[in-house]
Amino acid sequence: MTFVYLIVFGFAATAALGLVTSWIDRKVTARVQYRVGPPFLQPFIDIVKLLGKETVIPAGASRGTFLMAPVIGLAGVVAAATLFWVNQFFEGGFMGDWIVAIYLLTVPSLSIILGGFASRNPLASLGASREMKLVMAYELPFILATLVPVIWAGDLSISGIIENQSDGITAGHLSGIIALIVALLCVQAKLALVPFDIPEAETEIVEGPLVEYSGPGLAVFRLMKNMLLFTLPFFLIILFFGGMRLNGINILWTLLEYVGIVALITVIRNTNPRVRIDQAVRFFWGPMTVLATAAVVLALNGI
């Protein structure tokens, strides 16, 4: 029974916080652009509205795969979020470790790719192939960068990583800072935000893999993306700031860290143009990998 509560909490809390984060993102974006921005409930209203819309399925597409894809992605995020919540607030933690987290966090991308492929639309196929290339690109530095906290903690499990940071967070070390920067940019790509919104480049390939989705399918995808918008910063906080601490003054710190990460993501997205896919791959396999490797080497040497 506890388990059911956990999952419901993992889903509901993540969804709620994700939608709020999405609002923050949109609002900050609007403010940067001298606009007013959407009302607070807007992301939530969007989802409800999409649920009420008709579902259209592209002719000749595989109906099953087309409709399954968003659900698979949602399941991936729910699992990843639950994993983090459980390890954050349960003594000892269970279910999985750093490796599991990394793998679970690729499931949303996978679902977008599958959905794009199933759409029978050349633009969606192209977008999905770009998404895949992007995954290949950022995975290498992301693994390296998130390995730094693991090295510092000397423990693979998420709860162990959190516990071992109680007397000194990863971001307090030089290697931690470098890794954080790399991981942040990888998160930007994972969220498919500018400058790495290449797969969904609206003005090139019309939302890419999502082009054919409407109604509930799109609602689930959007919900998934909004949940990711919370889950990934959460993951970073766990890795680099020792998790969310909800006691006393630490609440403020946690909030600050979270809002800081989200604000950084938003600012990056608003001050850059979209890059080309080959530039993105070069960027991640070149400077980012070098930086991440340097961070790992530093961490191994205790700097």
């Binding site: 949109r26 609007a30 606009r35 007013v36 921005g37 959407p38 009302p39 807007q42 209203i45 969007d46 259209v56 609206e202 003005t203 019309v206 939302e207 999502l210 082009v211 054919e212 989705y213 409407s214 799109l218």
Partner: peptide, 12 residues
């Protein structure tokens, strides 16, 4: 966007 309007990329 104040009214929740967005320019959609795809007609779907």
């Amino acid at each position: 966007e104040r009214f929740g309007m967005l320019l959609a990329g795809s007609i779907k």
